[in-house]
């Protein structure tokens, strides 16, 4: 078959539309299964060690913690950034309490007044093993947090192995976090 200008003119639009159509279809089906999320936020710190920090605690909830303490853990820890002013964080609390039965969660109160944060997490029972206050959001910047709630799975030794930028619930725990715990 010889290539003519007319042949190209008819073939190119069909091939182009076909490629776009198949691509869109894949995107849509992946969006339904959750494998493709155009709004996903990729955190550049995943796979890297946690940044250095030292934070005070919240009133009535013990001392804060430092990066060294987090690194010294022998079990994986889920680090959760939250705030009392954040509605999704309020919605996330029951899910966190369910997850906290399986693994320790350390909370970091992001840009929140310590007394508000403290009252907020003690209202219905705290899911957190330890809590610290990031009053001015400086630590959150180092972690690459773009909003609250965000969570990080930290392996023993202090390497970040997973990042989630949505409110956590047991389904996400089963689908995303638990499989990763097996390899640690």
């Amino acid at each position: 078959m010889n290539v003519t200008r007319r042949g190209i003119l008819t073939a190119v639009p069909i091939i182009g539309a076909g490629v776009l159509g198949v691509g869109f279809w894949r995107m849509l089906s992946d969006m339904r299964s959750g494998a493709f999320d155009p709004r996903a936020i990729k955190n550049p710190n995943v796979g890297k060690p946690i940044p250095g920090f030292a934070m005070p605690g919240l009133p009535g909830l013990g001392d804060g913690f430092t990066d060294a303490e987090l690194k010294a853990q022998h079990r994986p820890v889920l680090v959760n950034f939250f705030a009392s002013w954040c509605i999704p964080c309020v919605a996330e609390m029951p899910g966190l309490r369910a997850i906290s039965r399986n693994m320790p969660i350390w909370g970091i109160a992001y840009e929140d007044k310590p007394e508000n944060a403290s009252a907020f997490i003690q209202r219905d029972g705290s899911p957190y093993a330890r809590v610290a206050s990031d009053r001015h959001g400086r630590v959150a910047i180092d972690w690459g947090v773009t909003g609250v709630p965000e969570s990080f799975l930290v392996a023993p030794g202090g390497r970040i192995i997973w990042h989630g930028s949505a409110a956590l619930d047991p389904q996400i725990y089963e689908a995303e976090i638990r499989p990763r715990l097996a390899g640690l």
């Binding site: 007319r6 073939a11 339904r32």
Partner: peptide, 28 residues
């Protein structure tokens, strides 16, 4: 809503795919 997306995509496939196929067939 991805479900809506699938419907419109099917509609697009019919309208655009159909017209381009007709074009390839009749343009010569």
């Amino acid at each position: 809503d991805p479900a809506r997306g699938v419907f419109i995509l099917a509609l697009l496939a019919i309208v655009i795919g159909g017209s381009l196929a007709l074009f390839a067939w009749r343009a010569p």
